[in-house]
Write a protein that binds this DNA or RNA. Structure first.
Length: 250
DNA sequence: AAGGCCCCCAACCGCGATTGT
DNA sequence: AACAATCGCGGTTGGGGGCCT
């Protein structure tokens, strides 16, 4: 099969594979525009690159996906979406094409049916709509009234917002560990709200539909916290110290 | 046995990003 | 700075093979 420019298309032959392998072994990867000429192949550069990256490269793991790998794909896809090359980069020996094909043939349907179930569940549990608010990281000085307001366990804590004492968000810490003390947890100078925000980001899905909007198990104890947030149009949310999207790009 | 259907996966295509001139 | 060449990615296609009727 040839295209209009006379280049071969379609399945690769054993001989073509050998020519390309010999070429890569001699010249190394890269400079794909030179590969067809160097290998003596009547193929376009893209075809050569793809054949090497997805099939001929000896580092490729051609065994079926293990449970761990499938679990990793599910988690990474939840986090990254269809960014197959990034996902494959976390799975040694797997190519983006392998991961994409596996997702489309094995996992997409599974995820779709799970999502349907989740949606039904959420609709049943709560008919009220939730406004999505992007968390804004804050940095407080050590003598900030916000940090001094760290609550005793199981108590509500009103953290002031701005200069207006009438505006606050309520943090309700629930000690999920076995700490018997009712004293204030030893958290050093950590900025509690932002630390919990970042952790809550990763745990958000598990909490959808419940009143708990975040959790923090990375601290000394396992805490859950409820937050009464200001209105979305409150000036509090306009104090952009940095863009949270940057974190998502990491 | 054979025809139709479906699944899987290798390969192609289009396009945005990056690099070179 | 502008343009061309190249790279790399994600979406899509098409063919082979297995399964079902």
């Amino acid at each position: 099969m040839e295209n209009t420019s006379g280049l071969r298309k379609g399945a690769w032959t054993y001989e073509e594979d050998n020519l390309l392998k010999a070429c890569i072994n001699k010249y190394g990867e890269g400079k794909w525009h030179l590969a067809p000429q160097r290998a003596g192949l009547n193929r376009c550069r893209k075809s050569c690159r793809l054949r090497w990256l997805n099939y001929l490269n000896p580092t490729i793991n051609r065994e079926s996906f293990s449970e761990d790998e499938v679990d990793m794909i599910l988690r990474l896809h939840k986090l990254l979406g269809n960014r197959w090359s990034l996902i494959a980069g976390r799975l040694p020996g797997r190519t983006a094409n392998d991961v994409k094909n596996y997702w489309q043939t094995h996992l997409r349907k599974k995820m779709a049916s799970n999502k349907e179930k989740d949606t039904e569940k959420i609709l049943k549990e709560s008919m009220k709509t939730h406004q999505v608010i992007k968390p804004q990281p804050r940095t407080f000085s050590s003598h900030s009234p916000r940090l001094n307001a760290i609550p005793a366990l199981n108590n509500d804590c009103k953290v002031p917002i701005g200069n207006d004492d009438s505006k606050h968000m309520v943090l309700n810490y629930q000690n999920g560990g076995n700490c018997a003390s009712s004293s204030q947890p030893s958290l050093g100078n950590a900025s509690i709200p932002s630390a919990m925000w970042s952790h809550s980001l990763w745990n958000l899905e598990e909490q959808v539909g419940s009143e708990t909007v975040g959790s923090c198990s990375s601290l000394q104890e396992d805490f859950n916290f409820n937050m009464e947030l200001p209105n979305a149009d409150d000036s509090f949310w306009n104090l952009n110290i940095c863009d949270f999207d940057i974190l998502l790009d990491l």
